[in-house]
């Protein structure tokens, strides 16, 4: 008897576990400004989900609520089934303005997340060196952030987020402050990162092309107050090689479709 009772519970758990992050009926206002209203959204494990929408529609707010950096007025965020009450080791963040320590070397910056988690110096520097190599910055371990280009700085921010080995990586318009060529290279690297690391990425962008290019799932947010208007899951071209995506007809169709639904919100 107990076994038959347990089974549905187990099934439910398995289903819930597919979504590593669940946002449930979250609302948030800044004074009179209603940034998010009753927003519900799921983020499947091991996939990259983009939050796409015009500026000021609450993307950063949603991301920071998931990160536990700001508190929602109502509703809740579940990570692996547990309610978020603040930042935790299961999530790490890549900042739009990089948020690097200007007085610290690349090595210390990348290791800083581990430093705060109390990992011993030799160990955290080993880990940091590995990720510095992974993001293509080998040889720059002892440089300072001001000696690097914007693109390289964001690689440092990315290495820092990866080195703490969190399940969920939150990225707030990570490529918006780097030039177009660098950004394209980043997008390709991000695709292989999603493929090779078994991590969940939540990626904020205001670029339609970028969202369609990198995402397994795109949540389109409409502003004032922000809500999810549509969820798009690109299918066929995800398996293609990076060079062919931008020429794929489904890729172009989705870009057009998103533009059609967003254009009326652009003043």
């Amino acid at each position: 008897m107990p076994q038959t009772k347990k089974k549905p519970v187990h099934l439910q758990e398995a289903q819930a576990a597919d979504n590593v992050v669940s946002v449930r009926n979250v609302s948030k206002s800044y004074g009179d400004v209603e940034a998010l209203r009753n927003l519900t959204l799921d983020f499947p494990r091991g996939q990259l989900t983009s939050l796409l929408g015009p500026s000021g529609c609450g993307k950063t707010t949603l991301l920071k609520i998931i990160a536990g950096l700001i508190e929602a007025d109502s509703g809740e965020v579940l990570v692996d089934g547990k309610t978020v009450t603040g930042p935790g080791p299961d999530r790490s963040f890549v900042f739009q303005d990089f948020a690097l320590l200007p007085w610290a070397t690349v090595l210390r910056n990348v290791a800083f997340g581990l430093e705060l988690r109390g990992v011993a110096r030799a160990e955290r520097e080993d880990t940091a060196r590995r990720f510095i190599k992974d993001v293509g910055l080998a040889g720059f371990e002892n440089s300072y952030p001001h000696e690097l280009s914007g693109g390289m700085r964001q690689r440092v921010g990315l290495a820092r987020a990866l080195s703490v080995d969190a399940d969920v990586i939150l990225m707030d318009e990570p490529f918006s402050a780097v030039d177009e060529q660098t950004r394209r290279k980043f997008q390709e690297d991000l695709l292989s990162l999603v493929k090779n690391e078994s991590k969940t990425f939540i990626f904020v962008t205001h670029s339609i092309e970028e969202a369609v290019y990198v995402s397994d799932q795109i949540a389109i947010l409409l502003p004032r107050p922000s809500r999810v208007s549509e969820i798009i899951r690109p299918g066929s071209f995800r398996q293609k090689s990076v060079e062919n995506i931008r020429r794929d007809s489904e890729y172009l169709d989705i870009v057009d479709r998103i533009w059609a639904s967003l254009r009326s919100y652009v003043e």
């Binding site: 930042p87 999530r91 790490s92 303005d97 948020a99």
Partner: peptide, 29 residues
């Protein structure tokens, strides 16, 4: 000082004392 440094420290789990000695002090030095 840059607000996002504070968010970064918070996000990676800095205690208030760590934030003080590793971020605020150096940023304001």
């Amino acid at each position: 000082m840059n607000r996002s440094l504070i968010e970064m420290a918070h996000c990676f789990g800095a205690s208030p004392l760590e934030a003080f000695t590793k971020i605020y002090f150096w940023a304001a030095l």
